[in-house]
Nucleic acid binder design. Structure first.
Lengths: 125, 125
DNA sequence: CTGGATCCGCAGAGATACTG
DNA sequence: CAGTATCTCTGCGGATCCAG
């Protein structure tokens, strides 16, 4: 009631639907995949090479999730050897703009965050 | 080489530092906490009530992490009973703007995403 | 009121091998 | 090339109890 009473549910809807949606984006690899795919249609192996450290299994799972959310399109070319291309949907391209804002912030404050962490850790041991 | 060769490391720096920073923000509760704390100084119990579903343990852990990252300030009033207030730092307030863009996107496309998921699931079983 | 400490279950994520 | 299948292990996160 008072201005100090905050209810996140009022900001996000009833049962945190925003968080529900954002959780898909906030996965460990989601942003990287979306950023990589934003350059244009990308093949599976290209993604695997682009995103250092991701396992084939994880890439597949994340790709499926993003496709399910309507953020990626998956196009299969019935050639030999098989060729599959992933591309951002219009919705995802819109999201990509927001993501750039986020990554921009992260880049700008990277050193400040590192400093804050170092200082915090220093105060303890 | 060709234009189809994408390297995320080239976009994010060397070893995905952006992702490293964003991972802190992309936790299950981080965004909710930051949004809730953005309204002004907030007490521990207020946060606990605001963010439905979070456990006391998780709230504490996330709070510590955000404080360590220099995104939250923690102010202890040595009263009885103890009173602790959390507030966003300038850096975090900047981030909050970006977060609003993100949540705005999520809100706008919530139904579209739900539809995409339903359609995806429908095609399978 | 604001936490810390501990135990524990389960899903996430890696490694590896196999397939159309 | 583009996955799938399985096995395993780690660590997140909940529950509970304790403390300043």
């Amino acid at each position: 009631m008072s201005q100090s009473h905050i209810d996140v549910t009022a900001l996000t809807g009833e049962a945190c639907p925003v968080s529900g949606v954002l959780d898909h984006v906030s996965g460990k690899w989601s942003i990287g995949i979306l950023v990589a795919a934003a350059q244009g249609p990308v093949r599976f192996t290209e993604l695997e090479r682009s995103i250092r450290g991701i396992s084939r299994r994880m890439l597949t799972l994340q790709l499926r999730k993003l496709e399910r959310d309507g953020l990626l399109t998956r196009t299969v070319y019935p050639t030999a050897p098989p060729k599959v291309e992933y591309a951002l949907t219009d919705m995802a391209r819109e999201l990509h703009e927001s993501l750039l804002t986020l990554t921009g912030w992260a880049t700008r404050h990277r050193s400040a965050i590192a400093a804050a962490q170092a200082e915090y850790d220093g105060r303890l041991g």
